[in-house]
Amino acid sequence: MRGVLAVFRRELVLAWAGGSGLFLPAAFFAGTIFLAPLGVGTEPRLLSALGPGLIFVALCLASLTTLERIFQADLETGALDHQRLAGLSMELVTLVKVAAHWLVSGLPIALLTPIAAVMMRAETVSAATILPVLLGSITIFLWGGVGAALTAGLRRSGPLVALLVLPLFVPVVIFGAEELNHLLTGETFGAGLSLLAANSLAALAISPFAMSLALKLE
């Protein structure tokens, strides 16, 4: 367990040392949201109708921007081999890597949601607005991690990863946007939130095994 915690700390230190790239997905997310009104117009009713869906689409796209950072460098430098030789469970190591990646890339996006909702002229914006995006981003980053692990050994894998993981994001976008729509129009939580959480748990249960299997070297 101590070794896994050390990996977690290492990931965070590396992300922090990476500097400007840290908030890249959040910036991408914000940029997408700010561009939308320029394209579709500033009519408040139109914007508030588009808002929830657009926030989730922007979240999916933003998650793709830094996916190759999770495993590629560690695979090339042999850090992953060291961690395996140190006797660490690769399922836990991959999970911890995705968790660290989510903490620096996914969480900021979730925290930006209320601002994005205000920009999209939502009626009621509360702190609870964060919740659907928070749950959804966990699933998105876990499946994204699977895509990243599958393509870690490949050069220029960006567009390929997008093709692999975007179909897996479908349930998140559907349940998440529906739930966010509920919240932004002043209603309470619906069944979508439970389904969103169930979806996150399923991804949490399956993805570590897929990731560690995908990274196994011959």
Binding site: W143, L150, P167, V170, P171, N199, I206, A210
Partner: peptide, 16 residues
Amino acid sequence: ILCLVGAVNLPIIKFS
């Protein structure tokens, strides 16, 4: 691996 991940997700996608 991808095919199996997809096969697990396909029912969820269909349901959603």
